[in-house]
Write a protein that binds this DNA or RNA. Structure first.
Lengths: 219, 219
DNA sequence: GTCTATATATTGATAGAC
DNA sequence: GTCTATCAATATATAGAC
């Protein structure tokens, strides 16, 4: 696990359904906005966007609801900030994976997100997949922006497959890996089944290993 | 497409984001409950459970909100009825697929749900996967009952794989097919990408075709 | 920048007339 | 069985004191 990865609270960490009040005492002014983004990120993931109210976020951060609107003008405004935050965290994580690894090793890093985040995924599913699905149902303006988080992974994966010599099929292979990981998250969450999650990770790594070896490019 | 399948409004039919009022004139009393179940089923699928209000369902059915509570005592009560309805519709569909087909042909029928329901899946995802994910986040008591819809498919698929001679791996293969279809639905919905959906269906059918041929049992 | 108080709309749910 | 009227709670959002 990289530092960039472990700092992303919506992807990592322990499940806590009883989080209530996190006091804001002594917090600098600028950091209040960051705190709101961080807690909204967690709550949107763990409760869903619709089911999370301003009161929930305000209570979790430890500020009043009124103060809230000094930092964000609407709920959609927070959603936008959360999506931006997730994109930045994702970029940090992918950048960290790029250091000192082979293309195949990087793809394995991606696959093993499922293992690293197993507890949260079994409780809340995938933060990206569940958000895009909810925003699709709401016909929300931010739906496409949320899908761009997927695109960060997709393009990064395609880049790795290109490095492995799958120039022509790289985009398809990237979407395939993304799709397999999404299905695993949905079922692991529905059943709370960690063994299934692990077995699908093994199956996906085996699939990767038995891909036709086009060529090996050090990247 | 079977009759049982095409009568399930939450799985089939055209996307209609502008459905508003469906008049209830001349409807018999007993059918009002059924109408509520049917509209709630559609709306829970298309808007999500949390985002669907009593007013939404009542307006769609064409009754007043007050009348609503004569048929259901709470929102959770409707959810329960919707889950029961979906389980019954699923059983009808699987029973229909059992008639006059080989085990492999039946599995193909399942895989091609993605094609048959492509329009709705691209707009709203999979009705089962999206509901279980939402209920998991809400920590809802009906979460496990919703997952039982998955189990109907899982057990039915496992039965087909057993008939194909995969006695030992039948359960794992069933979950794998379920997982692949879920991932396809999530990404097809996030991107609104029908070409990706079709290509994953082809890939899944190819996977099925290249499975080691254990034995062929007519079922 | 943060708070309390408040406005307004909508939520799930109830009471009682017809 | 269906309706109108209404409830209490909560939602997003605003106004203004400190």
């Amino acid at each position: 696990m990289t530092d960039a990865a472990s700092s992303t609270n919506s992807w990592f960490g322990e499940v806590d359904r009883f989080r209530t009040i996190v006091l804001n005492e002594g917090m600098s002014k600028l950091n209040t906005r960051k705190s709101i983004e961080e807690m909204a990120d967690s709550l949107f993931y763990e409760k869903g966007f619709e089911a999370t109210s301003f009161a929930d976020v305000a209570a979790a951060v430890g500020i009043s609801r009124g103060n809230f609107y000094h930092h964000f003008k609407s709920k959609d405004d927070i959603l936008d900030a959360v999506i931006t935050r997730r994109m930045n965290k994702t970029k940090e994580m992918l950048d960290a994976w790029d250091v000192g690894a082979t293309p195949k090793g990087r793809i394995v890093s991606f696959i093993r997100i499922l293992i690293a985040n197993q507890t949260k995924i079994m409780a809340f599913g995938c933060p990206v997949g569940s958000l895009t699905t909810e925003l699709a149902k709401l016909d929300h303006v931010a739906k496409d922006r949320a899908a761009e988080i997927f695109s960060l992974f997709r393009d990064w994966l395609a880049h790795q497959f290109k490095a492995l010599g799958h120039g022509k099929d790289a985009a398809d292979l990237a979407l395939h890996v993304l799709s397999r990981s999404q299905g695993t998250a949905v079922l692991a969450s529905a059943y709370g089944d960690g063994e299934f999650l692990k077995s699908e990770v093994v199956a996906l790594e085996n699939w990767l290993e038995t891909l036709p070896n086009k060529q090996l490019v050090r990247g």
